[in-house]
């Protein structure tokens, strides 16, 4: 019996069966949503309200805000990944290792203290957003990248050494070139945190647009449909970034099988 297999752990199903299961879930959740929100008293808005909320968001300039958020994300990511890579790539140098480790430990620092000092130095809201993000993203990136470097087996290092590589060539070939696909993966893994942080930072430091501003405005409107619509938009934009990076990784690195 086919259906029975769907409930057996570790069962490998055909593509079409997996699709059937997915369809059942989507239809089920959709129907449930309709059903529980059709009555008078409800906590969650019905689909119609969410659709209306989405339209309202469009009128407030949703596309513009998404672009602004993506721009901020790109800018902060680029700066912090470059900084983190330099730190992580230099971590095999014994003298510089403590710096890298210390920086990765800084992720336990609370956000507020840092923003306080940043506010003294930076006045522009946008620049402030960028730097807050850069600092926090870097700490997470450094942690993950240090893990990547640490997980390189001794054999790979020795293999390069046996081919007359100098130590700096080992670093270049094995760590930098040989693990470049992992950098994209680190980016992808951490982007979920980054994306969440980004929206939060935007909503705290209003003034430069972005999805975070829309969230902030939601409080004023008390419009449930709008809030849920916005959550969904943020979720799907985030997922889109994730898919895109994964696609690029597979496209660029044939040898990559993580």
């Amino acid at each position: 019996m086919e259906i029975k297999k769907w409930f057996r752990p570790f069962e490998q199903l055909q593509m079409e069966q997996r699709l059937s299961i997915l369809t059942i879930w989507i239809v089920g959740v959709g129907a449930y949503w309709f059903a529980v929100t059709s009555g008078e008293k409800r906590l969650f808005p019905p689909p119609v309200k969410v659709w209306e909320g989405l339209q309202a968001l469009f009128n407030e300039g949703l596309v513009h805000h998404i672009a602004s958020s993506l721009g901020l994300c790109l800018q902060a990511t680029l700066i912090s990944i470059v900084f983190s890579l330099v730190v992580a790539y230099l971590s095999p140098v014994p003298f510089l290792r403590p710096v890298a480790v210390a920086l990765s430990r800084m992720r336990y620092l609370p956000l507020t203290g840092i923003t306080f000092y940043l506010a003294i130095v930076v006045s522009n809201a946008r620049a402030m957003q960028v730097w807050v993000l850069v600092i926090f993203m870097s700490l997470y990136f450094i942690t993950s990248l240090l893990g990547v470097v640490k997980d390189i087996p001794q054999e790979e290092i020795d293999h390069a050494r046996s081919l007359k590589c100098t130590r700096w060539e080992v670093l270049w070939e094995v760590v930098i070139k040989g693990r470049f696909d992992y950098v994209l993966d680190v980016l992808r893994q951490n982007l979920a945190i980054v994306w969440m942080m980004l929206v939060t930072v935007e909503s705290i430091l209003v003034g430069a647009g972005g999805l975070g501003v829309l969230i902030k405005n939601s409080d004023r409107f008390m419009n449930h449909g709008r809030i849920v619509a916005l959550q969904l938009v943020i979720l799907f934009v985030g997922l889109g970034i994730d898919l895109f990076i994964n696609y690029v990784r597979k496209l660029l690195f044939r040898y990559s099988k993580i």
Binding site: P153, E155, E156, D158, H159, A160, E173, V174, K177, G178, F180, F253, Y255
Partner: peptide, 10 residues
């Protein structure tokens, strides 16, 4: 040549 036949993965 080590036991795992390590090569440059890239």
């Amino acid at each position: 040549v080590d036991q795992k036949y390590t090569l440059f993965r890239h």
